[in-house]
Amino acid sequence: MNTISKIITWKRNLFASILVLISLMVLDFYGVYTNQFYFLKADNYIFSVLALVHLLYLYVVWFKIREDELPDPKMRNVEYVLYAILFVYGFKIYESIQVLNSVQLYQDQIIPSTFKPMATLNVVLYSILPIMTLYTFWLRKKLIGIYNFDNYNSNLNIWQ
């Protein structure tokens, strides 16, 4: 894992995570069956709201690493919410695979030529996102520290 952390640094991981999240936020409005964007469906905004929580966590990790700060309870709470969001990411992987495999059901219908590439892109991006999120958790533990709030005040040394 140490070799991986030399290749995929925390900056590269955060940048790639932001890129994947923004791409998925845009692609969540795209209908692969119709080759159109749907902005008036309320379901399309759920992932975007959850992705904002993920982006907030990435910002907090970036700030804590950059300022060399210890983890705090607010950061821990955002990370715990992100643990729950990981289940949503798992569901989105399942849903994207179901859409990709549904091409046999609609053989008699006119399916756009962009169906397979876009559906495959969705599956790949949704599959990469949990891996990058778990890697961010590992980086947080390695670079910022573990959540140890029992003796938090005794570990603070303001003279350093």
Score class of each variant (00 low, 15 high):
156 L>I: 15
148 N>S: 09
40 L>Q: 07
154 S>K: 10
50 L>R: 05
117 P>E: 04
3 T>E: 13
133 T>C: 00
69 E>G: 09
114 T>K: 07
151 N>P: 02
97 I>C: 06
92 K>F: 12
79 E>D: 10
36 Q>D: 09
130 P>D: 10
151 N>A: 06
83 Y>G: 00
143 L>G: 03
158 I>L: 15
136 T>G: 09
157 N>D: 15
57 Y>P: 00
86 L>R: 11
146 I>K: 15
23 S>C: 12
69 E>H: 14
97 I>R: 05
51 A>K: 01
62 W>T: 00
111 I>K: 01
148 N>K: 12
121 L>N: 04
119 A>S: 14
35 N>F: 04
8 I>E: 00
109 Q>F: 07
145 G>P: 03
24 L>F: 03
130 P>M: 11
142 K>L: 12
20 V>P: 02
68 D>Q: 15
48 S>L: 03
98 Q>I: 02
149 F>R: 06
158 I>Y: 15
36 Q>A: 12
120 T>Q: 08
36 Q>C: 02
156 L>V: 15
80 Y>C: 01
91 F>H: 12
91 F>W: 15
134 L>F: 15
33 Y>Q: 04
128 I>T: 06
118 M>Q: 07
146 I>S: 13
97 I>N: 05
39 F>R: 07
128 I>F: 13
116 K>M: 15
152 Y>H: 11
53 V>E: 09
113 S>F: 10
40 L>S: 08
12 R>A: 13
143 L>E: 03
158 I>E: 10
29 F>Q: 07
131 I>A: 10
61 V>S: 12
10 W>S: 03
63 F>Y: 15
34 T>P: 01
7 I>G: 01
73 P>Q: 06
124 V>S: 05
56 L>G: 07
54 H>D: 03
127 S>F: 05
93 I>P: 07
21 L>P: 02
24 L>P: 01
40 L>M: 14
58 L>D: 05
59 Y>E: 03
69 E>V: 06
49 V>I: 15
12 R>G: 05
105 L>I: 08
131 I>V: 15
38 Y>T: 11
70 L>I: 13
123 V>H: 10
40 L>E: 14
51 A>C: 09
37 F>T: 11
49 V>K: 10
12 R>T: 07
100 L>Q: 09
150 D>L: 06
49 V>Q: 00
144 I>L: 10
151 N>I: 15
69 E>I: 08
94 Y>S: 11
115 F>D: 05
88 V>M: 08
140 R>S: 09
42 A>K: 12
43 D>I: 05
101 N>I: 04
61 V>A: 13
61 V>G: 01
25 M>V: 05
22 I>Y: 08
42 A>T: 14
154 S>C: 01
123 V>M: 00
10 W>F: 07
82 L>G: 07
8 I>M: 14
30 Y>K: 07
128 I>S: 05
15 F>S: 09
75 M>L: 14
100 L>C: 06
23 S>P: 05
82 L>A: 10
76 R>H: 15
143 L>A: 02
45 Y>E: 00
158 I>N: 12
157 N>T: 09
19 L>N: 02
19 L>Y: 06
62 W>V: 00
7 I>S: 02
50 L>M: 12
3 T>N: 11
150 D>S: 08
104 Q>H: 14
127 S>Y: 11
